[in-house]
Design a binder for these strands. Structure first.
Lengths: 199, 199
DNA sequence: AGAGCGATGTCATTCGCTGACATCAATCTA
DNA sequence: TAGATTGATGTCAGCGAATGACATCGCTCT
């Protein structure tokens, strides 16, 4: 491996920069090449030019390396809900947040597709994805409570929001899809309203 | 340990019966006593009078032992959706299924409370619970498709159903709760409809 | 009586993950 | 500027989850 060869160059500091990014990159490459289970943390670290131990300093486990971006997404959702105009209905505030998140994801479509391909191929990763989505739902519910929304409306609205998001996301990653993400969010929300409006 | 002492009794067959049940019992006891992470599969097996290897013949992993009942729940949900009268609205069929499932859970309230206490205390177990719920949602969506319901209505209705179920379950678990489960399902569904009926 | 079966046990191994401690360039401080 | 400190990384030892391969041995059927 040439990676270790270039490590001590007079131009660089002691360590090559962006260890976290290199680990992310190495991980997704290997997960795509061989699959998640067939990839060893030692292999990821080696490709990134680091020790196995270092991987676990950046990511609590082998799965978490794929979910690093979810914190930023959560902040965006929360701030959008919090900043909605006074008097905005809970579900409308949540819808605005989802549209903002969708717009953000759209900027990294290729990466999102790769990431999703890896996740859908592995049950352990699907579990992790679900708990991340659940965390987003809980965070939005919190934000709604800050706006004075009561239980169980806050929790219910957060969860419904995630349902809408998942539905829109599915359409968005479809190869045949032409619509943009925020647009798909609005469409999913409309469909949800039809589903729940029955007697 | 006296367990091994009684293993070869002239009354019994070669093995003590109900190995699966003994493993479940031992597992939940230990998870309650020491917590999930602090419990070793070897300890569970020992308490059940079996070898560690045998545990993994009954359960694919250390978590699965807590979710053995979800298959029966899924069957009940599916058959109830499938058997709903012709012309029943998708969400109404799903609501009927959830009420049936709720009624079933009610028969084992103590066990359900213990199990939930263990799950809520551990993130890994919460992950597993979420994917089980997701599987229930997918199964109901399948059942709806059998009834001629199209996408994305089928998927959306399944997921909304699980949202309703979770909300009702939370209330049902509460020590102050007096209402019965099917009743709580109807109440949660009403709240959901209010959430989504806005402009 | 013997063959085959099925539930269980034993053993060895891989890998995820963690704690403890070492290293060493960069940086701060006296 | 010598020396202490810090922070990112490496090294090593070890535990426990999980799996494959093979052994054991009552039971049942011929």
């Amino acid at each position: 491996m040439s990676l270790t060869v270039i490590k001590y160059d007079r131009v660089m500091g002691r360590w090559e920069p962006n260890a976290l990014g290199r680990l992310q990159q190495a991980a997704i490459e290997l997960y795509l090449e061989r699959g998640f289970e067939q990839t060893t943390v030692a292999e990821i670290a080696k490709r990134a030019g680091l020790a196995e131990r270092t991987f676990f300093r950046y990511f609590v486990d082998k799965r978490e390396v794929l979910f690093w971006g979810s914190a930023a997404l959560q902040e965006l959702l929360v701030s959008t809900v919090v900043d909605a105009p006074i008097g905005t209905a809970p579900l409308v505030a949540v819808a605005a947040a989802l549209e903002a998140a969708g717009a953000l994801l759209q900027e990294r479509r290729e990466g999102a597709l790769q990431r999703q391909a890896v996740i859908e191929a592995n049950p352990e990763l699907r579990e992790r994805e679900l708990i991340k989505l659940s965390s987003l739902s809980a965070a939005m519910a919190d934000a709604l409570r800050q706006r004075g929304v009561n239980e169980p409306t806050a929790t219910l609205t957060g969860e419904v929001g995630i349902v809408v998001f998942k539905s829109a996301f599915e359409h968005w990653i479809s190869p045949s899809n032409q619509q943009d993400f925020p647009q798909l969010i609005r469409a999913s929300l409309d469909e949800l309203r039809e589903v729940t409006s029955g007697n």
